[in-house]
Design a protein around this nucleic acid. Structure first.
Lengths: 137, 137
DNA sequence: TAAGAAATAGTAATTGTTACTATTATCATC
DNA sequence: GATGATAATAGTAACAATTACTATTTCTTA
């Protein structure tokens, strides 16, 4: 039953995540929370991220390289740039029906889904165009 | 320009992957290809998996734990069981329109997407029901 | 069949994450 | 407010997955 006990470190981790919209990694979170708790341990960051994820208070985004975290839990999708690997939000209205579609063809129980879009972000697209321009000259 | 050079090991890795529909990890691939090449190196497996992924001949599935690989590249989605972590295929007909929907709200270029469904597979569902049954008794 | 380059095996190093342990912080009860 | 039970912490060690390095081998082409 192990009751949950308050911790300032956990509070700080969560409020840092709430202030960010760029899906930071555990390490970035560690670097920033250290400003408030100079000797917080990286293990504490990981433990609390796992705990908050289990509680449903934050979301873990598993992608290439390190996992990323997001305290904005309203359903939304992510775009991952294959140029700079930045993770951006995409607000989709009502994707739920695809669960129902998938359920029709599946004998287990579908509880939800995640969508990751990929391509090039605005910045990388501009950079790429500049290079093609240059090659043409 | 570094020309691509044939290798029996790469061939063996690819043909093993083509024979499987359960999205094996690098380690499983290593174990199996070793039957044909007893002293193939794990590094060779990783290097070729990365190369084949870049060439678009196989797909890398990044999820909790080790990455998984799939040589069946026709567009399809994956279901990941939160009980046993098994990865199963789900064939969806024409999901492409969601790229178009997402593109409307996004200033970069969306080239594609992946969907991962989650829930409980048939086996884990049965197991869970058995436990509830027992609890009731 | 000989030369040049890519791929390999074997091993070491790196990265991201989890586990362990002695100490500290939180919280309910007095 | 002091006390005791236990959850959470800092610090460090261990771990698993993956990548990097290097001397040797294999493939290609001419």
């Amino acid at each position: 039953m192990t009751a949950l006990k308050y911790s300032r470190q956990r509070e700080s981790i969560k409020s840092f995540l709430l202030s960010r919209y760029d899906h930071p990694t555990a390490d970035t979170i560690y670097m920033n929370v250290r400003k408030e708790f100079p000797n917080i341990s990286l293990g504490t960051v990981y433990r609390n991220l796992a705990l908050l994820t289990d509680l449903g208070e934050i979301i873990k985004i598993t992608t290439d390289g390190a996992d990323r975290f997001d305290a904005h839990v309203e359903p939304h999708s992510h775009f991952i740039c294959r140029g700079c690997h930045e993770v951006l939000d995409i607000q989709m209205e009502d994707e739920d029906f695809i669960d129902e579609e998938a359920q029709k063809k599946f004998s287990g129980r579908i509880e939800g889904h995640t969508v990751q879009y990929f391509g090039l972000c605005e910045g990388c697209l501009a950079k790429k165009d500049a290079i093609s321009e240059q090659a043409r000259a």
